[in-house]
Amino acid sequence: MLRITRTLVDSLVDHARADHPDEACGVIAGPTGSDRPVRFIPLVNAARSPTFYEFDSADLLALYREMDDRDEEPVVIYHSHTATEAYPSRTDIAYASEPNAHYVLVSTRECGSGDGPFEFRSFRIADGEVREEPVEILEG
């Protein structure tokens, strides 16, 4: 189960809309062991692609160092799909490397850059297995 505030959901979806038709990506960090997403960190998609995303290599190092210094971990790792459903692709599964993270997918295939409907789903990905989990949105 992913518990996440509405403010964070809105920030994440806004990022996905802004970057449409390219995939948007980022992290929501939280205190280590808390399973609580707190700090929204949108990142540049170094691939700048509608079908692929990758964190920039220098951003990735800076991100992990900063989280280490603050005793945080990536509670949520998110990216958008801009033409397909919000479900992990084969490459998403192959490269998933944080078995403790919630992998959030947003699809902007209907709303594009506008205010229309979006999909927001959360998954655990470990050892090549995908498991969808419920999302509870907390007011705030």
Partner: peptide, 8 residues
């Protein structure tokens, strides 16, 4: 060592 955060 950091695995890339990437996918499709």
């Amino acid at each position: 060592i950091l695995p890339a955060v990437a996918g499709g």
